[in-house]
Design a protein around this nucleic acid. Structure first.
Lengths: 119, 119
DNA sequence: CCTGTAGATTGCTATTTGGTAATATAGCTC
DNA sequence: GAGCTATATTACCAAATAGCAATCTACAGG
């Protein structure tokens, strides 16, 4: 059903939209209210509010208050979780296990014998 | 809209599903065909194939061939891109960026959805 | 050929998502 | 309090998604 109750899924889903990533990038330079977050886009105000709600549900943004403004603050914690999730896969690009290596490895597996050449 | 033509969006979208993340985790231990990827889940085979298509469109998985099997290989490149994207935000959790961040971080850690006071 | 097996494809739901316009609410400022 | 400003909420639509059962395709072995 993919109701996305888990934190990681909600964060990934929130980041899967260029508009929302741009909003985060703006917030990385400092807090901003809705009008300001809206400025770079040709989107209606409710659309921006909706995007903000997605970011808030993911915990990436925290709401503030200043008279009638609602300045948003970036919260990095969910991004840290993503960074930790990446840990399992990190060696695949940091070490000598390149995409090409994997591809060639797959081709070789057709033969079924074993003896992985260690260059 | 959001046709997700950009690589980053496609990758984030693909990762926003626990089933697909589990499939990647399995592939991290070595190539696997559809029957094997299907095993841990109570999902129909076409559903798994669909998930695989999403992962392939994101470039996270490469298709192989072995008689009637289609063993899949993990490709880490899109994950590397995510890692690079995170770079902008990394200092926010590696250092204590601000007092507000600290405060919000601890709030998040509690994650306590208590009963809301009725207004 | 025929049969069994592994996957892909098709066709169909229900739900979610990104967008909109219209309206409601909250807080200045006069 | 009237009016202005900033934002949220509501109601709606179109498209995308996750799921399924049924069917088609490709290949290995007799």
């Amino acid at each position: 059903m993919a109701i996305e109750q888990d934190q990681l899924s909600a964060t990934f889903a929130a980041l899967a939209d260029p508009t929302r990533r741009a909003m985060l990038a703006r917030l990385a330079t400092g807090d901003a209210d809705v009008s300001e977050l809206m400025r770079p886009f040709e989107l209606a105000q409710p659309t921006i509010s909706k995007h903000l709600k997605v970011l808030e549900r993911a915990g990436l943004v925290a709401p503030g208050r200043d008279a009638q403004r609602r300045p948003r603050t970036l919260v990095a914690t969910p991004l840290k979780q993503i960074d930790q999730w990446l840990e399992t896969y990190r060696r695949r690009w940091e070490r000598r296990f390149s995409q090409l290596d994997q591809y060639l490895d797959t081709l070789q597996k057709k033969e079924k014998p074993r003896a992985r050449p260690k260059r």
